[in-house]
């Protein structure tokens, strides 16, 4: 059924959406930044450097989430030959890549005042770097093979190989001794982060999600325009 989405119909929605998303993003980012940088308390041990967390953690979550989505869409798209899913994956990837780099850079900046080092080759940090490289290869693959069956196959294989790394990133801190601390937020048990610090974290996550959505919509619109220009009336 997804095969027969008409690009014109999708485009009429996705071309109007960005301005509303941008509006919402600016509001939530403003609230999130005020909460994170001014209203939230300092940490008992790290004092103000804890504020880096409000950028670092959401960025890491989102780049993991986007990679999982890309893999899911690519595999379904590859097995059932749904072209549209590949366009969605392709449009999601850039923001995922940017957030993986942001997570690494802010982690490095955070590591210096707390751990005493910019970089450590521990399991969490190394696996995160590998994810970043997978994003990079994925984007390069789209550059080399432009929207044809070969590109679909190759990008699917890249995502399937990369998805193995995602649970490794998640559980690296539990499986091995790492310099990186364990997860503070657990869905099933009580979080070890105080409520006053949890709220800004969640608001910032919402803001970053909206940012990804915004970039996605812009990229996706470009892809749809490309298809329209080719004169294809369906995806």
């Amino acid at each position: 059924m997804f095969k027969y989405f008409e690009p014109n119909k999708i485009f009429s929605i996705t071309s109007k959406a960005p301005k509303y998303v941008l509006f919402l993003f600016i509001i939530i980012l403003t609230v999130g930044l005020i909460e994170a940088l001014i209203l939230s308390p300092e940490d008992y041990k790290q004092s103000h450097s804890v504020r880096i967390m409000y950028v670092h953690v959401p960025a890491a979550w989102i780049c993991l989430g986007i990679f999982s989505m890309i893999t899911f869409l690519s595999v379904i798209g590859y097995v059932f030959k749904i072209r549209n899913f590949f366009l969605i994956s392709k449009s999601l990837a850039p923001s995922g890549f940017v957030f993986s780099v942001i997570a690494l850079v802010t982690g490095s900046i955070w590591g210096k005042p707390t751990w005493g080092t910019w970089w450590a080759w521990d399991a969490r940090i190394t696996s995160m770097l590998i994810l970043s490289l997978f994003y990079f290869i994925y984007l390069i693959a789209w550059r080399i093979y432009d929207n044809d069956d070969k590109a679909f196959k190759i990008t699917t294989i890249i995502t399937v190989a990369g998805i193995i790394n995602v649970p490794i990133i998640k559980y690296s801190v539990d499986w091995w001794n790492t310099l990186h601390q364990q997860a503070s937020i657990n869905i099933l048990s009580k979080s070890s982060i105080h409520v006053s610090m949890l709220y800004p974290l969640l608001i910032m996550t919402a803001a970053f999600t909206l940012f990804s959505l915004l970039i996605f919509l812009m990229k996706y619109n470009t892809e749809l325009i490309k298809i329209k220009n080719k004169g294809l009336d369906r995806l």
Binding site: D43, T114, G116, T117, L179, Q181, S192, I193, H194
Partner: peptide
Amino acid sequence: TKILAKHDENYMPPEVK
């Protein structure tokens, strides 16, 4: 030759501590 601090997963304001 080098010392790194490893901190735990607990985050809270000083008053709560």
